[in-house]
């Protein structure tokens, strides 16, 4: 709905108030990254400095946590893309016993509160005698990332006509060629979108990670420790700003890329 009449003042003010409520805290992160105050969250900051950016750049624990987060997110995304696509292909293109159950199965890890998935996985690892390592974090993240790839892929498979594949086969393409030349180009963008969502989801995940990580820290775990027991506020401020920057830029880019199109990517997290 759209009407060209002017909005009532009260409506406009409350909408703007809502926007300020949503954006101001994030803006504040940028200010605090430069504060000279080390012991408290004093506002207004007594002074501004660039010192803490340098200090943070030199911190090994931050780089290690970032490295682990990127590694876990990358591997979990690849695994989720393979598993999600295979499952989506099977569900969309054939009927078999338990087909409905599978679509419920992939949604469950994300529909249930993270703490339930976390405890379940932890006890499963204990039962299977798998020691905690990077791989247990990866498995945990893959578990809830599959669904975003699956959702994107299954929607695309349903829209892709099956006769395309039949035609490719009739024209002499073998299975591998059909996959590479016909199926992949058709589902490519959906996989890409699903993969990006999965990566973002994994990169930010904290609850399941607390149950599946040994004593390694991903970046969110590092952040959580700082939140519960603040020890180095200035470094945390800079890390928070860096994380916001990393998320802001893709959103702005996505907005400018999809601005002219009717639909926007990723309406739901």
């Amino acid at each position: 709905m759209h009407s060209d009449t002017k909005a009532p003042l009260a409506l406009k003010l409350s909408a703007i108030g809502g926007l300020i409520f949503l954006l101001a805290p994030i803006a504040l992160i940028f200010l605090y990254a430069f504060t000279t105050e080390e012991k408290s969250y004093q506002f207004p900051p007594p002074g501004l400095t660039l010192k803490w950016i340098g200090v943070t750049m030199g911190r090994d624990d931050v780089w290690q946590a970032l490295g682990l987060s990127l590694k876990v997110a990358a591997i979990a995304t690849v695994l989720a893309m393979v598993l999600g696509t295979l499952t989506a292909a099977a569900v969309a293109r054939s009927r078999f016993f338990g087909r409905e159950a599978i679509s419920l199965l992939v949604i469950l890890p994300i529909a249930l509160p993270g703490i339930i998935t976390g405890i379940s996985l932890r006890s499963a690892f204990a039962l299977l005698d798998i020691p905690f390592s990077t791989w247990t974090i990866v498995l945990g993240h893959t578990t809830f990332c599959i669904v975003v790839v699956y959702n994107n892929a299954v929607a695309r498979f349903r829209r892709t006509s099956g006769s395309l594949i039949d035609a490719a086969m009739d024209l002499g393409a073998d299975g591998v060629q059909t996959f590479r030349l016909v199926i992949l180009p058709n589902i490519g963008t959906a996989l890409m979108a699903g993969g990006m969502l999965a990566f973002a989801l994994s990169f930010d995940e904290v609850i399941v990670t607390t149950f599946t990580a040994g004593n390694q820290s991903t970046l969110p775990i590092w952040m959580l420790e700082e939140l519960v027991r603040p020890r180095q506020r200035p470094v945390t401020n800079v890390v928070a700003m860096a994380v916001v920057l990393v998320t802001v830029l893709p959103i702005l880019a996505a907005y400018y890329l999809t601005r002219d199109g009717a639909e926007t990517a990723g309406s739901e997290k």
């Binding site: 954006l23 930010d204 952040m223 959580l224 928070a240 916001v244 998320t247 959103i251």
Partner: peptide
């Protein structure tokens, strides 16, 4: 922006 920013 708030939707996609890191939860923590």
């Amino acid at each position: 922006l708030p939707l996609w920013s890191s939860y923590l």
